[in-house]
């Protein structure tokens, strides 16, 4: 790990980064994936608070994954958020990891995290060995010829299905709110740019609208072992059903794209439809429209479809099987 200064306040710029929970940052620094000279400690920042109203849920950026997951209002009004968090990482990591940090977790692509390999995200222009290499875990949606890495977090997938927004304060002090859907950037030719954050920007809050759909939201995660593993595919759904008709639907996929992947077409197809298996299977297929396999990850197309279908079934007819895979 490169030596650095830890400061409570500092000038943002090249070579400076922020630390909140530190669970991902320290891994990246130990592996020499990043080597900042200055690390600004957010521990003293007043970015806590979990506030739930009939309109929205607000999560302070420094709230821990554990606290948000366990919060009774979150569990009642936005269950997919709690589920996604509880299916993430380990209890220890969840006691450390924060809301803002989880949004910014870097990809688990093995080529990105081992500096012995080339990587366009780490060293723009150096190449992407994953495209012709070990890509069983890689993206089927939203990837580019320069990068096929996936976003690894679960929590923002749930947020995406519920139309959440991210409040950001800039270095100069101005604050803006960005829909999560606009927060992430697809790799294109610049896989090193992952979000719209500018140097010095800090995520301060996450805002999630309240809705009947959010109340019935479900997060379904499929992985290689029963716990403490990243998603091979996951689905977050938030649907409102009245008289067996779907009034509203939010659907997002995780583990299959460079960002939490909103399945807008599947959402639209569901609105007005009868809440039955045929509709849910159709939505599953639409959710992966445009998917492209890199080689070893072809199974993810069917897996993601089935995750969506199963999550919708679960939301419509709860059996408490969520995530117990």
């Amino acid at each position: 790990m490169h030596a650095f200064q830890l400061i409570a306040a500092g000038t943002p710029g090249a070579g400076t980064t922020f630390i909140a929970g530190g669970t991902d940052l320290l891994q990246l620094m130990k592996n020499n994936v990043i080597a900042p000279d200055q690390v600004v400690d957010l521990a003293g920042a007043h970015l806590r608070g979990i506030t739930a109203t009939s309109i929205e849920l607000r999560l302070g950026a420094l709230e821990t994954m554990a606290d948000v997951a366990a919060h009774p209002e979150v569990r009642r009004g936005w269950p997919a958020i709690s589920q996604a968090l509880l299916l993430s990482a380990s209890p220890q990591i969840r006691n450390m990891g924060t809301m803002g940090g989880n949004l910014l977790q870097r990809t688990r692509c093995v080529y990105f995290r081992d500096t012995a390999f080339a990587c366009n995200k780490r060293h723009p222009g150096s190449g992407c060995p994953a495209i012709a290499g070990e890509n069983r875990e890689h993206a089927i949606l939203g990837a580019s010829d320069s990068c096929i890495a996936t976003h690894p977090s679960d929590f923002p997938v749930a947020l995406m299905a519920m139309g959440a927004g991210v409040a950001i304060t800039a270095a100069g002090g101005g604050t803006r709110v960005v829909p999560l859907a606009d927060f992430y950037r697809l790799p294109g030719d610049t896989p090193e740019i992952e979000t719209i954050l500018q140097p010095g920007d800090v995520i301060t809050q996450i805002v999630v609208p309240a809705s009947e759909a959010a109340k019935r939201s479900v997060y379904m995660k499929v992985r290689d072992r029963s716990s403490f593993a990243y998603a091979l595919a996951s689905a977050a759904v938030a649907i409102e059903i009245r008289d067996n008709r779907i009034l509203h639907a939010g659907i997002a996929l995780g583990g299959v794209a460079p960002m939490p992947w909103r399945a807008a077409k599947a959402e639209q197809a569901l609105i007005g439809a009868t809440a039955d298996a045929a509709a849910f299977e159709h939505a599953g297929r639409l959710a992966t429209e445009g998917a492209r396999a890199a080689g070893m990850n072809a199974y993810k197309i069917a897996l993601a479809q089935r995750a969506v279908t199963r999550a919708l079934m679960e939301a419509a007819h709860p059996t408490a099987e969520t995530g117990v895979l």
Partner: peptide
């Protein structure tokens, strides 16, 4: 798993 191009174990963690 081995990265075929480089012969390096890819998931070495």
């Amino acid at each position: 798993r081995t990265d075929r191009a480089s012969g390096r174990f890819a998931n070495a963690n």
